[in-house]
Design a protein around this nucleic acid. Structure first.
Lengths: 213, 213
DNA sequence: GTGATAAGTTATCACTGATCGATTATTGTG
DNA sequence: CACAATAATCGATCAGTGATAACTTATCAC
């Protein structure tokens, strides 16, 4: 009953990067299935078909693996945000669609989202020292795209508040609250998810924009 | 330079509960100073002045310690919520004050808040199996008090939405977003904190209540 | 005093992330 | 084809983690 320990064949000389991708793939699958903390480096290595120390040829620490996954996911969010901005018009409907992009991304990439915004940092900055703030910077990149959209509705005179940073941070917090709770507390007796999301987004819209009841 | 290892004198026979309190006190301090994951059971034991296995006479697992801390903190929130409800009148001002109670509690008890709402659960329900959902139930207790307040403004005909559960969950998510981000990402270039909180709360109020601009 | 037992100990386990030094396998070059 | 260079990888091992088992010691009621 001992594990078969199927070893993946050694990579040709220049193809270490390929192994790196395999590690990221395996890690993402395991994290998604079992959660970040419960997955060990040995489990990841076995899934890839290499020894556990071999991981450290490609990543300095375990946290670096999660950080990399997170950065990649946020690159996708930035893309989506830019797409949302491309066909954005300063209307309530378009604004709600933009908010929805954020929510959908979070729910489709729960693990990346966790790493970027929900992983404990340690009050002494331990986490920061370990992985740097690259994952968060990636998240902020998306945040800035979002701020640009908010800027447009502000310039159109639709917002209650004039300060773009202020509105954006507030809206972001509002969106993050929903996403993070739906991820972290999936078994809470939530109202039907689609309804809740729609409800939440229109509440945020009403709170931020004036005129439209 | 080796640790002095000051041992606390053995407790008299019936006074084990007292040691339990000492453990909770020490754990709370350490968690607050260094973060949950970076504090080991050995560190807690040394702070108390007992051996590490002695902890297990009072708590079945490390998670049980954090869970207990969390439950106690939420008992305080319930108290505050009930106080807020006691002198609650269905007005915009009173409503905003109630929202503020939640935010203040979260920021004053960041560690309890983390344990209850931000700690990873493991997608297979691992966390639930370990500590039960008692901490979350404690949080929900507070949530229900909050729902009662929302019910009052609904009954006064002040809300856009009629469904109390729906509004409450939405508002809760909105509040949680701000609190959790301020806790987990304290070094983000936030707008001045007091301003942000005021802004956020009035956005939520505008989104939930009608009439008051 | 004498058991009973609460309170606490030491030793140890399986597991974690991480490091070291040695060992392959593949490669471009002579 | 042989060979040195080196990328890729492994086995052994380390300190630290949460947790358990078996044992000791202080305190209590009688």
């Amino acid at each position: 009953m001992t594990a078969p320990k199927v070893r993946s064949p050694r990579k040709p000389k220049g193809q270490g990067a390929e192994r790196r991708e395999e590690i990221l793939d395996a890690a993402l699958k395991l994290f998604s299935a079992k959660g970040l903390h419960t997955v060990s480096t040995r489990q990841i290595a076995e899934a890839v078909g290499i020894s556990q120390p071999a991981l450290y040829a490609y990543f300095a620490t375990k946290d670096d693996i999660t950080a990399e996954l997170c950065i990649r996911a946020f690159a996708i969010l930035v893309e989506r945000m830019e797409a949302a901005r491309a066909d954005f018009t300063p209307t309530a409907e378009s604004f709600e669609r933009a908010l929805r992009v954020y929510v959908d991304f979070g729910l489709e990439n729960p693990d990346a989202y966790r790493v970027a915004f929900m992983v404990e940092k340690g009050l002494d900055g331990t986490y920061k020292e370990r992985v740097g703030d690259r994952p968060m910077m990636a998240g902020i990149g998306a945040f800035q795209r979002f701020a640009e959209i908010v800027g447009e509705v502000r310039d159109a005179g639709l917002t209650h508040d004039d300060d773009v940073q202020r509105i954006t941070q507030t809206l972001w917090a509002g969106l993050h609250g929903l996403v993070s709770l739906l991820i972290a507390r999936a078994d809470f007796p939530w109202v039907e998810r689609e309804v809740l999301i729609a409800c939440h987004i229109s509440l945020l819209r009403r709170g931020a924009l004036k005129g439209v009841a």
